[in-house]
C-alpha cells in the first residue's frame, strides 16, 4: 500500500487502466505485431515510429491544416446547430409548419447525408466556404429533428401548471418550452460532433486545396504514407477531442437539467 492513504495504490491505477484501455491498446499492439511479423514494405504501411517522427519534425504542416479543419468543423457545427434550432422553433410555433417540416427533417436525417457532399460541392463551387456550408448542412438536420422533439417533451404536468398560473405564450416558451429542449439539444450536439469533423475532412479531400482532408489526399497520391498516417492520427485526435468534449458538455448540462 502507498504511504499516502488518500491516493489509490498504484496497483489500483493499473487495474483501472487495463480494464478501460485493454481494447484500444490491444488493437495498437496487433497493428505493430502485424507489421513486424509480415514485414510489409514501409511504403505500404509505415512503422508507427516513423509516423510519430513525421509528426514531430513537421509540426507546421500538420498544425496549419489541422487548425483550418478544426475551425471549419467547429464553426459549421455551431452555425448548423443554430440554424437547426431556429427552424425547429419556427416549426414549433405553427402546427402546419411543423407538420410539413418535421417529416422532411426526419427523412433527411435518415438519408446518408454525407453522400450529398459531391452534389453540394458542385452546387456551391470548389471553395473553402463550401466546406463550411457542407458542415452546416450536415449539422443542421440532427439539430432540427432533436430540438423539434425536445420542444415538445415537457416535464410531466408542467404544461397544465403553466396554464393554471396564467402564463402567456411567450412566458411559457421562455420558461418552459425552450429549457425543456436543452437535453435533446445536447444529444444533437454529441451526435453531430464526429460527423462535423468527418464531413469537413471529406469535403477537403474531394475538392479542397488546404486542410487535413487535402493533406491526406496529397500525401496519398504522392505515396507519402507516413504523412497520410500522420494525418489520420491528427484527424483522430481532433475528432476524439470534439466527441469527448461534446459528451462532457452533455453530462455537465444533464446534471443541472435532469
Amino acid at each position: 500500500m502507498s504511504p499516502v492513504s488518500q491516493t489509490r495504490s498504484p496497483l489500483d491505477w493499473v487495474k483501472t487502466a487495463i480494464s478501460r484501455y485493454w481494447g484500444v491498446v490491444g488493437v495498437l499492439i496487433a497493428w505493430q505485431a502485424w507489421v513486424t511479423i509480415t514485414g510489409v514494405n514501409s511504403i505500404v504501411i509505415p512503422h508507427p515510429i516513423n509516423v510519430v517522427g513525421d509528426l514531430v519534425f513537421n509540426p507546421g504542416v500538420y498544425l496549419a491544416n489541422a487548425g483550418q479543419t478544426l475551425f471549419l468543423a467547429a464553426a459549421g457545427l455551431i452555425l448548423g446547430m443554430a440554424l437547426g434550432t431556429m427552424v425547429a422553433i419556427v416549426a414549433w410555433s405553427s402546427r402546419i409548419l411543423s407538420g410539413i417540416l418535421v417529416p422532411l427533417g426526419l427523412i433527411f436525417s435518415s438519408v446518408p447525408v454525407v453522400a450529398l457532399i459531391p452534389v453540394l460541392a458542385r452546387l456551391l463551387g470548389y471553395d473553402v466556404k463550401t466546406v463550411l456550408g457542407i458542415v452546416i448542412i450536415i449539422s443542421f438536420f440532427p439539430a432540427f429533428v432533436f430540438t423539434a422533439a425536445g420542444l415538445k417533451s415537457l416535464p410531466p404536468g408542467s404544461s397544465d401548471l403553466f396554464k393554471v398560473f396564467g402564463a402567456s405564450r411567450w412566458t411559457r416558451f421562455v420558461h418552459l418550452v425552450l429549457p425543456s429542449a436543452v437535453p435533446n439539444w445536447m444529444i444533437a450536439l454529441r451526435l453531430s460532433a464526429p460527423p462535423a469533423v468527418l464531413s469537413a475532412m471529406l469535403a477537403e479531400f474531394l475538392m479542397g486545396k488546404s486542410g487535413l482532408g487535402f493533406l491526406f489526399r496529397q500525401s496519398a497520391t504522392e505515396f507519402a504514407t507516413e504523412r497520410a498516417f500522420g494525418t489520420s492520427v491528427i484527424a483522430t485526435v481532433i475528432s476524439v477531442l470534439c466527441f469527448t468534449s461534446a459528451v462532457a458538455a452533455e453530462k455537465f448540462i444533464n446534471e443541472k437539467w435532469k
Partner: peptide
Amino acid sequence: LGVAFQDHALLPWLTIRDNIALPYKVAG
C-alpha cells in the same frame, strides 16, 4: 389560482428557490 398536482411538476432544471419563484416570473 394556486395548484398542486399528484405529479409535483417541478421543473428539473431549476433550483428549489427558483421553482417556488416561478409563479412570480410567469406573472411578470
